[in-house]
Design a protein around this nucleic acid. Structure first.
Lengths: 128, 128
DNA sequence: CAAACCGTATTACTCATATAATACAGTTAA
DNA sequence: TTAACTGTATTATATGAGTAATACGGTTTG
């Protein structure tokens, strides 16, 4: 069963996208693997304190991307292979890296300063 | 006159927040300084291709934070001192760094891998 | 002074997000 | 078999973001 223990909800980003992102990051991290059972829509919505429809939207998009399999009445499972994992990895890493670089550059930071900043905050506690 | 030449609009984030962020990053970068003249609401909205109300919303929030001065009929100017600049800097840098670290950690990257990723994309072209 | 700007305000509309309350049919396990 | 779960679907509502079209009054400059 996939754990949502480390899920941290932020505002400013649609919840269903945050769920999508969390799953994809787990795939890259290797904490979510092929065949893993997903929590049901109702269970996860209760856990996160959001509406079941919001979870359903996220799951539906994951299914459209071919990352999970859902069948009416049955539980949902991750469907992953090397190709899909590689695709998700490049999508996410590139998107994040580009965003970071854009942000740092707009602030006038040099590459060295950006790296120093990253190192400085790496070991700090992020979770609330 | 503050330039919006390097402003890149992304979707997924409210435009008025992007304007706010762009100004604040300029303050940190030093490209925006005390006394600088801001483009009028109408001019900037035309330049960005957005509604004047969207720009007004961003400017209003900047005024509420004490970063600009607006008087009916007259142009708007940046109002910055060492204290406010330091405040904006810590707000933005910490927020960005924390977000980056959270993202990388959720993907299971090590500090070294995160730095390598940042270096890899630093010199790539970001603009469309 | 008068024209051309400026900031400010109002109302109405569309769209996406998220919630809410159900309902129905398929699967699974006691 | 039946109860307790699943996934799926529908309709309604609320809110925020963004657009659109105006309007009013103050400032600036020729």
């Amino acid at each position: 069963m996939i754990s949502f223990e480390k899920f941290i909800m932020e505002d400013g980003m649609p919840i269903y996208l945050q769920i999508l992102q969390y799953i994809k990051r787990g795939i890259i991290a290797g904490t979510i693997a092929d065949g893993d059972e997903l929590p049901s829509r109702r269970m996860l919505s209760a856990l996160l304190g959001v509406n079941p429809n919001t979870v359903q939207k996220a799951y539906r998009m994951l299914e459209d991307e071919g990352l999970i399999s859902s069948h009416s009445g049955a539980k949902s499972y991750m469907v992953l292979n090397d190709e899909t994992i590689a695709r998700v990895r490049s999508q996410l890493l590139e998107g994040d890296a580009v965003g970071i670089v854009l942000s740092m550059k707009q602030m006038g930071l040099s590459k060295a300063e950006a790296i120093a900043l990253l190192e400085k905050y790496w070991d700090k506690e992020v979770n609330p």
